[in-house]
């Protein structure tokens, strides 16, 4: 059973890892629905997909709103069919040392990076159980297992996401649905662009492959887990980080 013609939902597909993942799934023949937080972002996604020759389009979605999630899933289902591949990728950082971290910095990262996964997975799981086939891939981070200064909120959200992945994997395994995570290391996107030069150089000394990863290198791993080739993998977190977190 290939993913050709299946509907794939990728949250946060306007740039970075999400966009690369949307294209990787498009290349495999999926109908790709990518989301952005703005109308212009959603249009860019539609355009980008069309230019690459992939099926699908962009939608506006705010993963912190249950109403937004419900209405977008409904609209996708009506237009293309139920999404059977879901990539929970949308995410933000709001770094601060714990001693300085404001409650809203904590809350917004937990809401956008963790509760979002509950919302989107719950809204799409019924379609997958009906189809007796499904793939969920949640985007974690190397920080979930390694920790990182100034990212207690982010590390908590990502570690939570990995636990969620394993619990959900058990719940829906009998329906031929796999739930996995990909934990990227440091990838060249807007999210890491903000790092100061000094920290950037320091970082490179900790990565055996001595470079940042490219979004496509994460997308390849996500596409694999979404493919039929990964049908016996569930509840797993795949580390893609240039070797910085070997165990």
């Amino acid at each position: 059973m290939s993913i050709e013609g299946k509907v794939a939902l990728v949250t946060g597909a306007s740039r970075g890892i999400g966009r690369a993942t949307a294209y990787a799934l498009g290349k495999m023949g999926a109908i790709v629905v990518g989301t952005a937080t703005s109308e212009s972002g959603a249009e860019n996604i539609s355009q980008g997909l069309a230019e690459e020759g992939y099926k699908g389009k962009g939608y506006v979605l705010n993963v912190t709103s249950q109403d937004s999630v419900d209405s977008v899933v409904k609209a996708i289902t009506e237009e293309f069919g139920a999404p059977l591949i879901v990539i929970n990728n949308a995410g933000i950082t709001k770094d601060n040392l714990l001693m300085r971290m404001k409650e809203d910095e904590w809350d917004s990262v937990i809401d956008t990076n963790l509760k979002s996964v509950y919302r989107v997975s719950k809204a799409t799981i019924r379609g997958m159980t009906k189809a007796r086939w499904g793939r969920i891939v949640n985007i974690s981070s190397v920080v979930a297992t390694m920790g990182n200064m100034g990212q207690s909120n982010y590390a908590a959200a990502k570690a939570g996401l990995e636990g969620f992945t394993r619990a959900m994997a058990r719940e829906v395994a009998s329906r031929n649905i796999t739930v996995n995570a990909v934990a990227p290391g440091f990838i060249a996107t807007d999210m890491t662009h903000a790092l100061p030069e000094e920290q950037h150089n320091m970082l490179l000394t900790q990565i055996p492959l001595a470079r940042l990863g490219q979004p496509e290198e994460i997308a390849n791993a996500v596409a694999f887990l979404a493919s039929e080739g990964a049908s016996y993998i569930s509840g797993e977190t795949l580390q893609v980080n240039g070797g910085m977190n070997m165990r």
Partner: peptide, 11 residues
């Protein structure tokens, strides 16, 4: 039926 079946049945 298992627990997931009963939830799906109600849905």
């Amino acid at each position: 039926a298992d627990s997931l079946d009963t939830v799906e049945l109600v849905m």
